[in-house]
Nucleic acid binder design. Structure first.
Lengths: 148, 148
DNA sequence: CCAAATAGACAAGTAGCTTGACCATATGGG
DNA sequence: CCCATATGGTCAAGCTACTTGTCTATTTGG
């Protein structure tokens, strides 16, 4: 594979992920959550299972804990998360999604699924499955947030 | 393909593209161009062939022309581009890469090629080619810059 | 038991955009 | 050939999502 092909692949990768993020953001907005940005969505994916501390969120989002705290503040003001005491650590506060937060998460998931479904219509389920498997082999699980 | 698989694909796509951008940025820095950010690299890819006007650059990067002008200013101060008169339009100024700008572009290309080569070692050339073809089918050519 | 690490908060600063207003030049229909 | 409208670029001001730096409270480990 030539270098030019490698370059093409990297450009395509960026283009596809940008389009995807925009599609998800648009879907979330259309669902009525107009005060959410992509960064919030990345936070939600971390909060969804069992909640998280601000520091855990910061690590996951690839930002300082101050920035994460600010983001959590905003989500709290808008009713997407609660902040309670942490069961195992008196220093920490456990941030968890509210029902509204979970609804927004579902809206984002739906938008992502719709985007992926549209892709599948274009390339078919077999190539879609291969694509997913190949990406899984590449994507080192690091920071989730691409700093949009 | 289930929704959860679609979600996995989208997460993987974002993860892979983030890792790639960071790898390119790191490579450019290691090559000595410490005053460049990813957004500059995206600008270079548009400038490389024949130069461009500030407005064209703005459209390509998905930002206002004022922001693009500011970016060009910075590149000019640091010796990466020249700004000359436009041959066909007295309003416009043609922004072109200097030798230093072309060298930085090569450094970015090299880093991208190295990252892709590392991936190819993991999944092999065949899957790599398929991956590229599948991504080409998905990526609508829109804005290049993911607003990092 | 104490030293070092960690969670979080408070304060201040900043980079990289934005919106708004404006002038100079280009374009195209009448 | 005009003139209305669009476009390229600039100047100015403002804002948002971060950053760095410092501090306290609590936990952890040797």
């Amino acid at each position: 594979m030539a270098d030019t092909d490698h370059l093409a692949l990297t450009a395509l990768l960026l283009s596809a992920s940008t389009a995807l993020t925009e599609a998800i953001d648009a879907g979330v907005h259309e669902a009525g959550f107009t005060d959410l940005r992509p960064a919030h969505g990345f936070a939600f994916t971390r909060l969804a299972p069992h909640g998280a501390t601000t520091a855990q969120l910061a690590a996951h989002l690839g930002m300082t804990k101050q920035a994460a705290a600010q983001l959590v503040d905003e989500l709290h003001r808008n009713g997407y998360v609660t902040r309670g005491p942490h069961p195992d650590d008196a220093r920490a506060r456990l941030v968890e999604l509210t029902a509204k937060g979970r609804a927004a998460t579902r809206a984002a998931d739906d938008a992502a699924a719709r985007a992926a479904a549209a892709w599948q219509e274009r390339i078919g389920p077999d190539r879609m499955a291969r694509l997913r498997a190949d990406l899984a082999a590449l994507a080192a699980p690091g920071h989730l947030r691409p700093a949009w």
